[in-house]
């Protein structure tokens, strides 16, 4: 399972979100979430979320942007 996930990431052009990967691999998103977290803990994947400081210099929410938090913007990529 984990090796299949890593293979998918190697073939992907960039970061992949959880729902997309779950659909691609036909795995329950909640179960896949656990696997991804395990891979992150192992240092094999990185989890990207939050705001780029450059993009939001004038915003002032300091990473707590409500719009961003309300989106499914959590993506994973090879570490």
């Amino acid at each position: 399972m984990l090796r299949q996930i890593l293979r998918t990431f190697r073939e992907a052009p960039g970061p992949i979100s959880l729902p997309l990967l779950a659909a691609q691999l036909d795995i329950e998103p909640s179960a896949l979430d656990g696997m991804l977290l395990e891979l992150v803990a192992m240092g094999r994947l990185t989890r990207t979320e939050g705001i780029e400081p450059v993009a939001c210099a004038a915003c002032g929410t300091e990473g707590n942007c409500p719009y961003l938090l309300s989106t499914d913007l959590v993506c994973y990529a090879l570490a």
């Binding site: 705001i51 993009a55 915003c59 409500p66 719009y67």
Partner: peptide
């Protein structure tokens, strides 16, 4: 997402494949 604020809308494009 851009209806709320364009900045996270642009950042949300990261979920697209290419």
């Amino acid at each position: 997402v851009g209806f709320g604020c364009n900045v996270p809308g642009i950042l949300a494009t990261r979920t697209l494949e290419n």
